[in-house]
Design a protein around this nucleic acid. Structure first.
Length: 266
DNA sequence: TTCCATGTTCCGCA
DNA sequence: TTGCGGAACATGGA
């Protein structure tokens, strides 16, 4: 669920379902996910208030209330939000649930419990404190900023794309997707890209993330030449039909097409 | 039963 | 200093 496009979709969900509605109850059903604040205090701060806007920075979602409280969501590997009015629409592992006065509920579902809900001072302060780089789709990350961030790096492109201190929002799956779109082997080193390919990498990552958001991460709607729904060694490359391969890069399973992206970095 | 999984964090090592 | 590799966290599905 949880790379930048997924988080943006969660943000849009909050925006379209939850804004302006009085929060009657906050149910903390598993306090393991609630960090840095007692469940009672979380309830006290939110009940009676209403959400007024939702913002994203990389893989983090921030929702501000009319009272000025900022709630931070991080989705870990398995978290997502769901809005429902019929109790039957409740997801399988709801950990924190916001119930609105005029009916309807927003649930934070997190099967693997690696997600986080907490109160923060705001997106900018949080990003600064964490040392996060600019959101990968923000205006702050323009071509020049990306060039400067990449230049002089010694590691692999994939590792750099996933480094949240350089740019925020890309994880394991999207780093593979971007490398696939660029036809670069997952172990390609940043130092082997010339300026031209750094610029192309920038364009590719912006396009790829935007296309995924546009398709709402629906496998049926994603561009046909996306590797994303084919992260499987049984699958065929959507570009050339060769077999998709899996290797380990920095300890993460990485899928690529050896025919399009090369058997070896280069 | 074993392996793997989109997240972050921390530690040791080169 | 930078970057890598592995482990840990918690849980469940194939």
């Amino acid at each position: 669920m949880p790379e930048l496009p997924d988080v943006e979709i969660q943000r849009q969900l909050v925006e379209s379902t939850a804004l302006g509605r009085r929060i009657e109850t906050v149910e903390v059903r598993d306090e393991y996910l609630v960090k840095g604040v007692e469940p009672d205090e979380l309830r006290g701060r939110l009940e009676g208030d209403a959400f007024r806007r939702a913002r994203r920075h990389g893989k983090y979602l921030f929702v501000e209330t009319k009272g000025g409280t900022w709630v931070l969501f991080h989705f870990g590997m398995s978290g997502f939000l769901r809005y429902y009015e019929d109790p039957e629409g409740e997801p399988e592992y709801p950990k924190v649930v916001w119930l609105f006065e005029d009916d309807g509920a927003l649930a934070f579902d997190c099967r693997r419990k690696l997600g986080v809900v907490r109160l923060v001072d705001g997106p900018e302060a949080f990003a600064r404190e964490k040392g996060l780089g600019p959101d990968a789709l923000s205006d702050a990350l323009d071509r020049q900023a990306f060039r400067e961030a990449m230049i002089g790096r010694r590691g692999m492109v994939k590792t750099a794309l996933m480094n949240q201190e350089i740019l925020a929002g890309i994880g394991n799956e999207f780093s593979d997707e971007i490398l696939f779109q660029m036809e670069l082997h997952p172990r390609t080193k940043v130092s082997d890209l010339g300026e031209g390919r750094v610029d192309r990498l920038y364009d590719t990552l912006r396009h790829t993330l935007k296309a995924a958001i546009q398709a709402r991460m629906d496998p049926e709607q994603l561009p046909g030449r996306f590797l994303l729904p084919r992260r499987d060694e049984e699958a065929a490359c959507p570009r050339c039909g060769a077999g998709v391969r899996r290797i380990e890069v920095s300890g993460r399973g990485s899928y690529f097409c050896p025919a399009c992206q090369g058997e070896e970095p280069g």
